[in-house]
């Protein structure tokens, strides 16, 4: 994965619009409270994250994703996994 944080944010915003019908959420908006982004959506998002990163996430990493609340949280999550892998 060779993406800057800005590119990652851009990709995520597109995924949110296309897959979850959430248009332009603020980077620190609580997705659950503001957009009813639930655990079913979160699991769908994991598939997309795996696609972006080109890796299969471990169950432990997937479990951690259930606590994600904001777009910035997702960026941090992806970056942390990427750093750990590289």
């Amino acid at each position: 994965m060779n993406l800057t944080r800005e590119q990652l944010q851009h990709k995520l915003l597109r995924i949110f619009e296309e897959n979850f019908e959430i248009k332009n959420p603020g980077l620190d908006d609580d997705l659950r409270e503001a957009y009813e982004f639930d655990s079913i959506d979160a699991i769908g998002l994991l598939v997309e994250i795996e696609r972006i990163m080109g890796v299969k996430l471990s169950q432990e990493k997937k479990k951690q994703s259930m606590d994600i609340r904001t777009i910035n949280d997702i960026c941090n999550y992806v970056e942390t996994i990427h750093i750990a892998r590289s």
Partner: peptide, 12 residues
């Protein structure tokens, strides 16, 4: 829901 440690089950 994913409460009560059911998150892994839900994901699987």
């Amino acid at each position: 829901t994913t409460q009560d440690g059911l998150d892994v089950l839900m994901i699987e």
